[in-house]
Design a protein around this nucleic acid. Structure first.
Length: 414
RNA sequence: GCAGGGUUAGUGAAGCGGUCAAACACGGGUGACUGUAAAUCAUCUGGCUCAGCCUUCGGGGGUUCGAAUCCCUCACCCUGCA
């Protein structure tokens, strides 16, 4: 059977876990470290695939839960798979739906921030609220659709069936993402479940891949997802358990702030096998995530924040984040960032984009999304270059000082 | 000219004797957003020496302990009839 995926490490940065390399997939290569563009519902919101590749995007990540609801995995399959369906030629990932166990579960109507970042109500964070749409059992997760309330079930097996129909190049194992401040006992129980689910995912995945081999379809790859919250022993045990199994790579889940990276990501990446790619799930809202992630051994990132924030007017510049809707930009006829080479910065002014947002014109979302996504994709590309020419720490320091000035996020060091 | 209706904060529009600095929407200010529940959400939006006070509901004058709310009058707008 032909390999679904291979990974070459071409450079390593001495004294760190950082590496540069190439992931080879049936739909092309990904030069790593790389920022994977969020395309949850088989679309990168407000952008055409040409715009995504134009801004430097190498691969996109869609979501199994969302595509199961709309349009349904069967339709994506009939279309010829995710890439064909959305006219994206390059590599694709799907997330399993594991994160929705969290976002529609304990975090529902409280917000990820409230559940993941605050110390208050830690026990509360683990408990079911009346509102939440998810119930977890050993068998799988029961969802109520956030769209119409209908009852759905997702199991490790069904997630793999769905992902194979959607047919991205790289799948994620169906995991439970627990609230990071849940009680220890719950975290242990949850991790055991995630591991059992991972084995069930792997088994079904291999069966499905064998069927593809018989029909001549490309092999698909599966990443195991490491959990364990902020507990070193749990994280190392998870990385050990999954690292011993035949996954094509690993996703790191349940990480919420840059300050966790030097601890949690390090524990995991010190333990995982070195020769397989590591994807940091859902992190990459701000530059510190990217520099620290790479430094502690991450190969790929995905995050929806650049496009979501762009739609809401929050825009990255090398001097920090700005809100383009603010009054002060009404008559600012300079680009978002004079040091940025993206399509938006080359062609448009802050005043024009400010106008588009105030007038509620959809082009504002597009131009802002092109810029924000370029900003993070390009930053990771530059980080890659800095690994190759051995200037990582200089680049990290100058970038983060310019971006954060005196306000480095908690836990971030230069 | 006669009869009726109207004039409320940046705009539209509730209120019809005390609990009204005055609902609500829009507009405006600011903030948030990390495997997308999100082109979303939060908050402020008369002034000030700010748990209190001051000035506001077309202008002026009354009634009342008390008026955006009732009466008189003036101005302007709308609708009928001449």
């Amino acid at each position: 059977m032909q390999d679904s995926l291979s990974f070459d490490i071409t450079h390593k940065l001495d004294g760190t876990l950082a590496r540069a390399g190439v992931i080879h997939t049936p739909h092309g290569d990904i030069k790593t470290p790389a920022y994977i563009v969020g395309g949850t519902k088989a679309t990168v919101k407000a952008l055409t695939p040409e715009q995504v590749s134009g801004l430097g995007g190498q691969a996109v990540l869609a979501n199994t839960y969302h595509l199961m609801l709309r349009p349904g995995a069967d339709i994506v399959q009939q279309a010829g798979g995710l890439g064909k369906f959305m006219n994206w030629q390059g590599p694709t990932f799907t997330d399993s739906g594991g994160f929705q166990v969290f976002s529609l579960g304990v975090a529902y109507k409280k917000g990820i921030d409230a559940v993941a970042h605050t110390e208050k109500g830690d026990a509360d964070n683990a408990n079911a609220s009346k509102d939440q749409l998810v119930k977890v059992t050993e068998h799988g997760a029961f969802f109520r659709s956030h769209l119409d309330g209908s009852k759905l079930e997702m199991t490790p097996e069904s997630s793999m069936e769905l992902q194979h129909k959607i047919a991205a190049d790289i799948h994620m194992a169906f995991d439970e993402c627990p609230a990071p401040l849940a009680p220890r006992q719950y975290l242990e129980e949850s991790l055991g479940r995630t591991h059992a689910w991972a084995e069930r995912c792997l088994e079904r995945h291999q069966t499905l891949n064998s069927a593809h081999a018989e029909t001549g379809q490309p092999q698909q790859a599966l990443f195991g997802v490491v959990q364990g919250a902020r507990k070193e022993d749990l994280r190392r045990a998870s990385a050990q358990f999954l690292g011993e199994r035949d996954f094509d790579g690993y996703g790191l889940g349940g990480i919420f702030e840059p300050g966790e990276i030097p601890s949690v990501v390090r524990w995991v990446n010190e333990t995982l096998p070195e020769n397989k790619p590591r994807h940091l799930l859902g992190m990459g809202s701000q530059p510190a995530d990217l520099f620290l992630g790479v430094e502690y051994g991450i190969d790929t990132f995905d995050c929806i924040a650049p496009t979501r924030q762009a739609r809401n007017g929050a825009i990255y510049t090398y001097g920090g984040r700005i809100n383009i809707k603010n009054q002060q930009y009404k008559t600012d006829f300079t680009p978002i960032d004079t040091d940025c080479a993206c399509y938006t910065c080359v062609n448009y002014t802050r005043a024009y984009i400010n106008h588009l947002f105030r007038a509620d014109e959809i082009l504002g979302a597009t131009l802002a999304s092109i810029h924000n996504e370029y900003f993070v994709v390009h930053t990771v590309d530059r980080i890659r270059d800095s690994l190759i020419d051995n200037t990582f720490f200089d680049y990290k320091k100058s970038f983060l000082l310019r971006y954060y000035k005196d306000n480095l996020p908690a836990g971030v060091t230069l």
